[in-house]
Design a protein around this nucleic acid. Structure first.
Lengths: 136, 136
DNA sequence: TTTATTGCGTAACGGTATAACGTGTGCAAT
DNA sequence: ATTGCACACGTTATACCGTTACGCAATAAA
């Protein structure tokens, strides 16, 4: 109930491997880091990773962090609501906290509409320091 | 009064050239596009562009679009308020509209604080279709 | 059976960004 | 004046990110 395991999608072998790597990581991973981790499983080329990532993102199981050029497993039960995800990225430990906020989603929609802009997706990535790192 | 020309910073030759390229462009430019445009002015290597861009971003004259890996001249009179800029990026024409919204800035701050996160900067980039392209 | 779709593997490539080196210039403090 | 420092600059090399183009195999649909 806390994972995406039961969204009904069934993953291919490569997709499963990439998903596994991201799920067991404790922070965002770059495509090339994933590639390196999966060499022993037969991965040889970036394209194998990118193809799997494309699908996983499409399924909503993985998010792409634009400001990091990296990918992270979605920690939410339901990410069907697109464009609502906000990431808090710690500059110190590199981890990403995923949150949603309806007020921001609503306001972004309003701002876009006000500019006569047909909104499709939103990227919201905040940089700063997480609680653990600030305490340390 | 509508440009940054009088912010008091004075730019070096390379910074001026890069700023000129971005100012006369009608959309975001990648670093390598800028490099190509400035070959005749003596530019030879990416680093010349990146160094200038770093400074221009630091001065607040230029914004970096994370989701595009590109750069755009700031069109606001005052961007001293950092972390408040929102970009509306048209998927069709590639242009970027720059807006600010205090409500979003405030709410982002609140969300970060709620997560015990010390917010430094915010990246907010919306994708969709601009009015001109939708009409076309 | 034929065709279309989808996933997979490989190689080569192009776009993005930085590291590491050294040079020159201006300027302040001796 | 010369030493020391900070800063911009130029060059080469390299690392990192992502895609194009090709072909093969398995499966699903007509």
């Amino acid at each position: 109930m806390t994972s995406h395991a039961q969204t009904g999608v069934d993953l291919t072998k490569n997709q499963t491997l990439v998903m596994g790597a991201l799920s067991s990581a404790d922070g965002p991973l770059s495509a090339y880091t994933i590639l390196d981790q999966l060499r022993d499983d037969g991965f040889r080329a970036p394209l194998q990773v990118y193809r799997a990532l494309d699908k996983l993102v499409e399924f909503g199981l993985v998010h792409r962090l634009e400001s990091l050029n990296a990918f992270v497993a979605c920690r939410h039960t339901e990410c069907g609501d697109r464009g609502q995800t906000i990431f808090l990225i710690c500059e110190t430990c590199g981890k990403a906290i995923e949150v949603t906020d309806k007020a921001i989603a609503r306001r972004l929609k309003t701002v876009a509409t006000g500019a006569l802009f047909a909104l499709q997706t939103a990227t919201v990535e905040l940089r700063g320091t997480c609680d653990a790192c600030r305490a340390a």
